[in-house]
């Protein structure tokens, strides 16, 4: 019964209009937007631009 409900939920997802949340690289959002797909873009990048050593320092400094 539970499995059937999940299956139905997944199936219904694809029957609805798609709205995408894009995190990080804006190019993915731009591509979908150009194809008419609604996108909410979240401007995000890893802490310290992905510099692991700086991120470690920041973590130790309480940021």
């Amino acid at each position: 019964m539970e499995k059937q409900l999940v299956k139905h939920a997944v199936a219904s997802l694809f029957e609805q209009p798609v709205h995408v949340v894009n995190v990080g690289l804006e190019g993915f959002a731009d591509e979908l937007t150009s194809q008419g797909t609604p996108v909410t873009h979240l401007d995000w990048q890893p802490p310290a631009g992905g510099d692991a050593k700086l991120a470690d320092l920041l973590s130790k400094l309480g940021s």
Partner: peptide, 8 residues
């Protein structure tokens, strides 16, 4: 400065 470096 922590927030500047962290956020970019």
């Amino acid at each position: 400065i922590r927030r500047v470096v962290e956020s970019g």
